[in-house]
Computed example of a mutant assay.
Amino acid sequence: MRLINKIELGDPSTQQQRFIDVKLRLMCCRYWHLELWDCHNMVFPFWRIYWNKNEGGELKLQHQVYQMDPDFLYIVSPFTPFSSSYLKNKRYTSGIHVAGKNLSFEHDETHYETKSLIHFFTHFNLGAPFDNVLPGIFKIQLTPHLREGLMYLTNELKLDNQNFKMTFNLKLQSFIKETISNIGAELWKTINIDERVLIVHRFIEANITEKLSNADLASLVHMAPNSFARLFRTEMNLPLHSFIQNRKIAKACELFGHTNETIESISFNLGFSDRYHFSRVFKAVTGISPAAYKSGRYL
């Protein structure tokens, strides 16, 4: 008979296990018919999963074009500069333009399929370091199990798209996790980054409202500022300064979505010198002004 080694865990084994903590935060999940989906150079600090029931949707990442297939899901990682369009109604070459409405059981989907894009999407974050992977669009085959989950979610969204039951939340989380688990292993190399970079990464996340200097961050891991800056860029494929700005803007987007704080308050609390400096950085990262983001005009 073996005695329990860790009483507080009820674990009878002496072998230590290491788990990766994924902190999934749901932001939105919707099922719409879209007459217009002209969105250009979108860059936002959250993950997206897209699925179109019918053909006609298109995604672009630099020179790569994805003609969206109903048999596939499309995953967009955070801070990916991409564009989207509904080819039957393509009007714009810049800006973010969306026209549509949520679907319900009062709507005849077959009617809308002839003139609209039947579109499912969900936005979410995974927490550090998974929100800082390489930018990209990933095409995932709809397995029978994923399709079953997708059908459950879209049917529930047609019943109620505001007040979700616990079952819906769990099914959505399961669907997201299964979908992203199908992305190739090369995407997740950030979980194996140098321990010194990871220490600083976690410090930045925990102190994102502070003014963070290269010298102070390098001192956390006992390195010279220039040496650490080179190490960080090699490991994260991004300069340290740009990374900090991206994380501050990501925090700002979260605050805009979940609080009533003003732009001035958020810019001050995130360590920017003034609203104008914050607005310049916000637009450089996302492509739109903080006022447009806060008001929801980007949708």
Rank of each mutant, 00 (worst) to 15 (best):
L73Q: 02
L73S: 02
Y74P: 01
Y74K: 08
Y74C: 07
Y74S: 04
Y74E: 09
Y74R: 12
Y74L: 04
I75N: 01
I75V: 15
I75Y: 01
V76F: 04
V76T: 15
V76L: 06
S77T: 12
P78S: 07
P78I: 00
P78N: 05
P78F: 07
F79Q: 14
T80C: 00
P81G: 12
F82I: 02
S83A: 05
S83H: 01
S83Q: 06
S83G: 02
S84Q: 12
S84F: 05
S84W: 05
S85Y: 02
S85C: 10
Y86I: 07
Y86M: 09
L87Q: 07
L87F: 04
L87C: 04
K88F: 03
N89Y: 06
N89I: 03
N89D: 13
N89W: 01
K90M: 10
K90R: 14
K90E: 11
K90D: 12
R91I: 15
R91T: 14
R91S: 14
R91V: 15
Y92G: 01
Y92T: 03
T93M: 07
T93N: 13
T93V: 09
S94I: 00
S94P: 04
S94D: 11
S94F: 04
G95D: 02
G95F: 02
G95I: 09
G95N: 02
G95E: 02
I96E: 02
H97G: 03
H97F: 11
H97I: 06
H97R: 12
V98E: 05
A99D: 14
A99K: 15
A99M: 09
G100Y: 03
G100A: 00
K101S: 09
K101G: 12
K101M: 06
K101W: 07
K101Y: 13
N102E: 15
N102L: 11
N102M: 15
S104I: 03
S104Q: 05
S104D: 00
F105R: 15
F105M: 05
F105A: 04
E106M: 11
E106N: 09
E106K: 14
E106W: 06
H107N: 15
H107M: 09
H107Q: 13
H107V: 03
D108T: 08
D108W: 06
D108I: 10
D108S: 12
D108Q: 13
E109V: 13
E109M: 07
E109L: 07
E109P: 09
E109F: 05
E109Q: 13
T110V: 07
H111F: 10
H111D: 09
H111S: 11
Y112W: 13
Y112F: 14
Y112G: 06
Y112T: 10
Y112M: 12
Y112Q: 08
E113M: 08
E113L: 11
T114K: 15
T114H: 14
K115H: 09
K115Q: 12
K115M: 11
S116L: 03
S116G: 00
S116A: 10
S116V: 00
S116Q: 13
S116I: 07
L117Y: 14
L117S: 14
L117I: 08
L117M: 13
L117E: 14
I118H: 05
I118Y: 01
I118W: 05
